[in-house]
Design a protein around this nucleic acid. Structure first.
Lengths: 233, 233
DNA sequence: AGAAATATTATGTGCAGACATATTATCGTT
DNA sequence: AACGATAATATGTCTGCACATAATATTTCT
């Protein structure tokens, strides 16, 4: 290796990654131990440790005490999906964000929601439907249930101005969450709201959050046809 | 805070997260500087630094030199999607994995693939179609293009036994990748292959990878109806 | 040989101290 | 007041050292 430049953890990171990419170190290979690498690259062990730790977190390396460090055989690539507030996602693309509250009602949850959140069938809940727009066009249709037992303050929130999600982000942080993605067909009603036709393929995102096992909210987000979620890996 | 226990970076991490969750520190609030926190919690600044750094990476904190550390106002939650090899995903659920090669042909790419990968229209490429099964049922239909210019060894690979993706993972690591998800309708052909009906909603994953700007592969993965991708946040 | 106790080892983490760097705050000049 | 130079400061990182911990290797005992 060239060396000569300054050795910081980032450069160690890059150098190790380079050796993996050039297949100097192949999947399954054991790489030199931290002390040796530190000596080779002219830096402290702590610096090498930091670099290798990050590489392990990124999925390129497998590390085990005493056993050493080896190149991952099945580099599970981790796509980091940023799940921003919809408003910021739209505004971030330079589009104009719009939001409309379609319905709020206070009632007991459906059996499905009970199962999702793990709450009783007699729970006090808020059911909210809303539509998010980008440049005036329907972008995402949201159907959400919020537990009033867990987040009583929600009943005083003005959900005609700020979306339930944004309100929750600011007032009810969660400790645990679940998110899933799938493809579904638009129903008659959904199609009408999203201004498309029944049977159109819709991207569905379902999110459920808890605060220490107390269910907060469960939401079903239906994106208008053409939506693509993407990410770098 | 209680304290008394041993102070390691993990406990600092958890304590700070607790203060955020209990809204002792609210979104937008500035939190004590590292030196103060270290004093409060009875540990070295390096330890606090490690904890806060992780929390910032997780999206709970915003940190800036001189400006200090504050609780994120819009906690962008990062869903970490593990993108494993399909075989491992299926076997990991205890199902039996099956794989069938449907077609391989060596030809020039379609304009769409050219655009995706950024290669010339006269590139030498391998076009591969295959079907992945779980417990004998169609699970995912894959249509892939591999650049022979970038990965010449692919022509000697036996793709009837091992999927192109698995072969690539082992023999052609990438430095850059792009992944996107969307919902589409099954075409007649796709429906036939996945043993469903035309017009069924399919979850589509598109992946493209490069090695230093040299396009490696572009793949279109169509999952059978009912597929759900999920993750904890 | 086989099992249990013990030693060895590579990574994991903590610490104090130092300097680097990006930003903000302040001061002086016009 | 506006502007540019300068000082102050919180985080970012590196270093050398020490000890903890988990896993493996070795030895000892039956």
């Amino acid at each position: 290796m060239s060396a000569s430049e300054q050795t910081n953890w980032q450069s160690v990171h890059d150098e190790v990654l380079r050796r993996i990419h050039t297949r100097e170190w192949k999947p399954g290979d054991q790489i030199p131990k931290e002390v040796e690498l530190a000596e080779q690259l002219g830096c402290a062990r702590a610096t090498v440790n930091r670099a290798l730790r990050e590489l392990a977190a990124e999925g390129f390396l497998d590390r085990r005490r005493k056993a050493g460090t080896r190149v991952a055989t099945h580099p599970v690539r981790r796509a980091k999906l940023d799940i921003p507030v919809i408003r910021l996602e739209i505004e971030g693309r330079g589009q104009k964000y719009g939001y409309g509250l379609l319905l709020t009602e206070r009632r007991t949850p459906t059996p499905e929601i009970c199962a999702n959140l793990g709450v009783s069938a007699k729970s006090d809940m808020l059911h909210i439907s809303s539509l998010h727009l980008a440049d005036g066009k329907p972008y995402m249709f949201e159907e959400r249930w919020v537990s009033i037992d867990t987040v009583p303050e929600i009943v005083d929130a003005d959900l005609s101005k700020i979306s339930a999600n944004e309100w929750l982000v600011l007032h009810a942080p969660y400790t645990k969450g679940d998110i899933s993605f799938s493809a579904v067909l638009a129903s008659e009603l959904e199609a009408k709201i999203l201004r498309t036709h029944a049977g159109a393929p819709l991207f569905l995102m379902e999110r459920t959050t808890w605060e220490n096992d107390a269910g907060i909210t469960s939401a079903r987000l239906l994106f208008a046809p053409g939506y693509r979620m993407h990410s770098a890996i």
